[in-house]
Amino acid sequence: MGSFFAVNGKKLQRQYKDYLSDFKEWKEKKHAKRYLIFPENLGPYLSLDETALSQGELYTIITNKKAKGKKGALVAIIAGTKAEPIVKQLLKIPSSLRNRVKEITLDMAFSMKHIASKCFPKAIQVTDRFHVQKLAIEALQDLRIKHRWDAIDKENEQLQETRQKGRPYLPELLSNGDSHKQLLARSRYLLYKAASKWTKKQSKRAEILFKDYPDIHQAYSLVNNLRNIFNKTKDKGVALTKLAHWYKEVEETGFKAFNTVVNSIKQNYSTILKYFHNRSTNASAESFNAKIKAFRSQFRGVKNIEFFLFRLTTIFA
């Protein structure tokens, strides 16, 4: 905009901040870094999540699903993820408003559940299915990474051996032109997706990967089976039975990371199964976080947190 009007961009930004906007008169400016609450934006269906604004500093954000990421979406943004300070601020909202909340989606963190229980006691808590699936995907990626480190070690040993013999090193290439190290590195993104969404090159790479590393294929099947429970099951009781079968599959594989996933699901199964009532997810919160990141990158980072929050609340609160 500065170049369009032939004005220095930084000067224009300063002019907007100090004179054109209402930032200097903003009532919430004194406590903006610690908390911002908008009780008028409360709705019956909320999302609770966390995001980083600047240099990894986390903020807890509550959004109203009905607003669909537009004006009125932001209910609260509070510094940190520690439960008690957040509860203290949210309890300032009249209980008559907080008791109207029927459902709140959140991740598996105990602090988030504590916040929801204390501040929205009449709301049903639903653990976001995508956080559950993310745990399983991380277990799969953990297996891939272990194999990749082994491949790197093997390649380094072969390289050293050929050098000692005075010969040039020629890595073993697979049918698609990848070395084992490259195959494992380049398979990262295809393992996030269902096989139906692979490109031709990804399908070829997956075929080679699963042939050479059958345990990765087995782990990928576990991830897909868990995904299908959420995608294809509508009844809570059926879902519980399918999860029990999935636990057995995991137990038979002996994958330690997946056993950790099973234990996490068991600890949160009551709130995970509530997904099947309304199929509610934290997608709105993730979408809102993406908007914050886009807003942050548009302005090349956050130099002034108060001013960033001022612009954020002007648009979304």
Rank of each mutant, 00 (worst) to 15 (best):
E172W: 00
C119K: 08
P168E: 10
A123P: 00
E161N: 08
Y169D: 08
I137L: 10
L159S: 11
C119S: 08
D128G: 02
R129Q: 14
W149L: 12
A151Y: 12
L140S: 02
K113A: 03
D150S: 06
P121V: 07
Y169E: 04
L174D: 09
Q160W: 08
D178V: 06
K118D: 12
R148H: 13
L173M: 01
K122N: 04
Q164F: 00
R148D: 06
D128T: 10
D150Y: 08
K122P: 04
A123K: 08
K113Q: 00
N156C: 01
E172R: 12
L143N: 05
F120D: 08
E172Y: 13
S175N: 06
M112V: 08
I124T: 10
K165Q: 04
Q158M: 00
L173F: 03
E138A: 15
G166Y: 14
P171N: 09
D178T: 11
Q141H: 12
V126I: 05
V126G: 14
H131M: 13
P168I: 04
A151C: 01
E161G: 03
R167W: 05
Q141M: 02
M112W: 02
Q141K: 02
Q160A: 02
R148E: 04
H180P: 06
R163L: 09
T162R: 02
T162Q: 06
N176P: 07
I152D: 02
E155W: 01
Q158Y: 13
M112A: 15
S175M: 07
R163Q: 08
G166N: 01
L135Y: 15
R129P: 14
P171I: 09
M112Y: 03
N176C: 08
K165W: 02
S175E: 14
A116K: 04
D178W: 15
K165C: 05
C119A: 07
D128S: 10
Q141R: 10
Q164V: 07
L135C: 14
P168C: 03
R163V: 08
D178M: 12
N156R: 15
K181S: 13
L170T: 06
K181H: 14
T127N: 12
K165E: 14
A151E: 06
L143I: 15
H147S: 00
I124Q: 03
R148M: 04
E172K: 12
A116D: 13
A123S: 05
K134D: 13
C119V: 02
A139I: 03
H147A: 04
P171L: 15
G166S: 08
H180M: 11
H147E: 09
W149H: 04
Q164M: 15
K181M: 05
E172Q: 01
D150P: 14
E155H: 10
G166A: 12
E138I: 03
S111Y: 05
H131S: 03
T127D: 00
Q164D: 12
L174K: 12
I152S: 07
E172S: 09
L135R: 04
K118Y: 03
E155D: 11
R167Q: 09
A136M: 15
T127W: 09
A151V: 07
D128R: 05
K146A: 11
Q125T: 04
E155Y: 11
A123D: 05
L174R: 14
